[in-house]
Design a protein around this nucleic acid. Structure first.
Lengths: 204, 204
DNA sequence: CACGTTTCTGAACATGCTGTCCACTAACAT
DNA sequence: ATGTTAGTGGACAGCATGTTCAGAAACGTG
């Protein structure tokens, strides 16, 4: 009743780890299948018995990560609440911290950026849905196009996350960064420099 | 006194255009040097008399574009003004509209995302400088870390720009999108749904 | 433990792209 | 008209790819 042969699991894990490590060191394009199997201490033929090529392994890694993130965000996005708690953002940052290297690979846009685009598109779609639901619940028409709103919001998150994951050691905690992101996003940069005393309280 | 042989200019331009077109069609990784020269209607040997490899051509394209953008932004960023006019953002959007295909290639993160990262880092550095100068001129301490502020602001711009360049035909003009971006960035999403009546006027 | 099954492995192979070289021709600037 | 520079096609070795196969090793199970 075992789900899979232990050797297969081991090999896949080794190949995955080897690819991530090598991409961080030398970049996706400069790596050969043999580099990967050498680092993983496996025969080259073993690679091809698991994946059709380097791209397939990379795609799998990205897809797994994406699925894991979606899984963790699901309970926070469903049902959609009207207020912005910032919980999904914090959860993404925590997930990224746990899977730091894999995230760095993807956020660097390795592999022609397909994986990154996929991630951004998924988060953007989710954000747009929330914004639309919120506008409808409040019976208002957003002064800013929802698509622009969602792209900007996700662009902000991803850009800051990418920077945060590359800084070593991190000057700020996940909680601090996401608090800033949420604050900035809700209240705007206008207040960011201390203009006009205390800014209004953020909504719940 | 001619700066360069007409044939060289012609070949470089043809190779450049061919690469950009092919990358948009099939993606950077799937393209061979022969594909490029075939599309450009040149001999393969000609390619190697101009560039060492595919990456060199790509890097050159990205560097040229970057230099052109920097040139156009220089007068708008120097000297740094205290207020946010949004002019640099609009100028970038206009430049991108003129060089749409080349921008799309770079913003998709083709070529392992190096070119995109370079672009983002340059704009982030410029933004951070402006933010710091502004905070100092006003004698205030920003409530949000300047690095986070700059990363978020540039991430917003780039994400929206990438989306805008891919939409066809564009639903919004460059002026409309940049106005939204500036508005959003200055006043925040808190007001974006029509909360609390009129938001405060943006600073000059 | 003993069994049948699955995975790993190294070697060999054809294929395709790379980057270099060269001799020849065409296009150029003056 | 002339000397110079660029483009061309062909040939070449080098390297990574993806496939195949038969033997060895590790596995799950009863």
């Amino acid at each position: 009743m075992a789900q899979e042969d232990r050797r297969s699991r081991r090999s896949r894990r080794l190949l995955r780890d080897a690819l991530v490590a090598l991409v961080l060191e030398r970049g996706y394009a400069d790596i050969t299948v043999e580099d990967i199997t050498e680092r993983a201490d496996l025969g080259r033929a073993t690679f091809y018995s698991h994946y059709t090529d380097k791209g397939a392994l990379f795609t799998q890694i990205a897809a797994d990560l994406q699925a894991e993130l979606d899984e963790r965000l699901r309970p926070l996005l469903n049902p959609p609440s009207v207020g912005f708690s910032g919980k999904p953002v914090l959860e993404m940052f925590r997930h990224a911290a746990e899977e730091r290297d894999a995230y760095r690979v993807i956020l660097r846009g390795e592999g022609d950026g397909r994986a990154l685009r996929r991630l951004v598109d998924a988060r953007t779609a989710a954000a747009a849905t929330v914004f639309r639901a919120r506008a409808e619940a409040l019976g208002v028409t957003p002064r800013i196009d929802v698509e622009v709103l969602a792209r900007a919001w996700v662009g902000e998150q991803i850009a800051v996350l990418a920077w945060w994951l590359e800084s070593d050691p991190p000057r700020l905690s996940a909680e601090e960064v996401t608090r800033m992101l949420l604050d900035l996003s809700l209240r705007g940069r206008y207040w960011a420099n201390g203009f006009e005393g205390e800014p209004p309280a953020a909504p719940q």
